[in-house]
Amino acid sequence: MNTNAAHTAVVVDAALSESTRAMKSAGRRMFNWVAGLSILLALWWFGAYLIEINPSTRHFADFGPVPTFQAFPVLWADGTIQSAVSASGYRLGVGLLIAIAVGIPIGILMGRSRTFRELSNSPFQLLRMISPLSWEPIAVIVFLSWNHAIIFLIAIASIWPVAFSTAAGLAKVDPAWFKVSRNLGAKPWHTLTQIILPAIAFDILTGIRAALGVAWIVLVPAEFLGVTSGLGYSIEDARETLSYNHLTAMVLVIGVIGYMLDSTCALAIKRFSWHRGAV
């Protein structure tokens, strides 16, 4: 018996079982993902069934899954979904961009300057604890259009997670990295782009993910008033016209898009994280 061959066989075996195990765990995750969503769907269907068999609630039966899924082709064909998504997406995107553009520098200042950190701590904590929607009456007075007011609400809601997460990331940065880069001739621009930003990319993206969650939650109620476009408006509109299946369809759209945006953030975090064993 050739020990070398035996050894090779063992190694190949080990590699095989390794890949089989990886495939099994991927398969298990996929199955649970589908099963979880199926359970949600079943609960929804069962709830709708209870509503339907009760004569006093029967006229709400359109909340059920079957009428809802029947509404999608209609809402897509008349462009309701597309225009609502693009109007809301624009507000969300601009609001988030403002939050990122302002939040990251604020976070870096908080992380790098003790004076700024101590000076800003209590005002920022106070501002952070104001429910974003409570700014709405003020925003409507300050900004001439509702559109701008909503963008402001999204920005003010999402700036804090970005800023605080950036600052927390910076606090964990090894000070020796600054010494090493200075030693190797880094100019401030290099320190920012080559050291600080990559070092805390994970924290910034985690902050943006949290900000996106808050912004998405603020967006819909903010659109209930004043505007005539967007996901929030389309729900409100469906309620007023008693088209309950349209209402649930738009709620579903909100959930699916939010889920996709969050998953994209999670992927970006994985991609830009250099921490071993993180995520």
Partner: peptide, 28 residues
Amino acid sequence: SRWVMMFQAPHLFPWMTVTRNVGIGLHF
């Protein structure tokens, strides 16, 4: 770049490959 210090710990940049770490001073 005429007088360069090497420290007790490597203090490498973990988000860069070996090549990028070595070349970072030249990049600067």
